[in-house]
């Protein structure tokens, strides 16, 4: 049993996509206020698992899902749960930056606005604060009203991060959040993640092993829809127990 305090507990999660058994009886615990990395070869179900954690998987047609995902003691797949509330609590950063079709300011203010914030002053404060947290404020403070589409990809991804943070989530999910970025922008995102973990539980999916080594406190190794091994990053990387984990870390499976 884990010694840490789990923030998300996944119990016996099974997911079928058009008859294909994509996630097989997944049971994992994700520690609070640490960075958890889900690693594994591409196509093994990492992203699917991640999207199951905030029910974005609901958007895909032809999905059948069973099992529990318990966040703060509540199963998010229970019918009583308000899915928009779940997604507010669990933010998400996608593979490619996808700003919304509006200004930089409105992108960050969008979340707070839909969740009921109306006061201009407070919104200004929120926008500034989270742009700062995401390390973007200095670059955009003079052009908050210009379209988000005019930013570079790296800036867009930090904008998306600020946007996710602005709804005040407890958990941030990152789906290979640096895969579309240049090395310098990737480094900035990684720095922001490390700074954020004192306040947030972070789960990232990555196929870059070195990134997992740099960032992760806790690691889940997924292979063909199965959890092969999970544990503190140090143990997994230095002393893997399973053969397949060894093989993957050694670069034999990719």
């Amino acid at each position: 049993m884990p010694k840490f305090k789990p923030h998300i507990r996944v119990k016996n999660l099974n997911l079928f996509y058009e008859g294909h058994h994509a996630l097989k009886d997944i049971t994992v615990d994700i520690p609070e206020k640490e960075i958890t990395a889900i690693i594994g070869p591409s196509g093994c179900g990492k992203t699917t698992l991640l999207k199951s954690l905030n029910r974005l998987i609901d958007l895909v047609d032809g999905i059948e899902i069973s099992g529990e995902v318990i966040v703060d003691g509540e199963d998010i797949y229970s019918t009583k749960v308000d899915v928009t509330y779940i997604r507010k609590k669990i933010g998400m950063l996608g593979q490619k930056p996808y700003p919304l079709p509006m200004s930089i300011y409105d992108n960050v203010a969008y979340g707070p606005r839909i969740h009921g914030m109306r006061k201009k002053k407070e919104l200004d404060g929120i926008v500034e604060h989270y742009l700062e947290v995401a390390g973007l404020w200095d670059e955009v403070k003079d052009r908050l009203k210009s379209p988000a589409s005019m930013l570079s990809a790296g800036q867009q991804q930090r904008l998306c991060l600020a946007r996710s943070l602005a709804v005040e989530p407890e958990i941030i999910l990152g789906d290979e959040p640096t895969s579309a970025l240049d090395p310098i922008s990737s480094k900035r995102i990684e720095e922001v993640f490390i700074a954020l973990k004192k306040d947030y539980t972070i789960v990232i999916v990555t196929h870059i092993l070195r990134q997992a080594v740099r960032l992760a406190d806790y690691v889940i190794f997924l292979y063909m829809g199965d959890v092969i091994e999970q544990g503190p990053a140090k143990e997994i990387f230095e002393n893997p127990k399973e053969e397949r984990t060894k093989a993957y870390i050694g670069g034999e499976i990719s």
Binding site: L59, T84, K88, M92, L100, Y110, G111, H115
Partner: peptide, 28 residues
Amino acid sequence: AFELREASYGLGSTKLEVVSKVISRQTL
């Protein structure tokens, strides 16, 4: 794009908010 819808659902938008605030602006 699917990802654009995903991004706005990911922030906890309702369907109405996704169509009226995001998709409508994207497709203006």
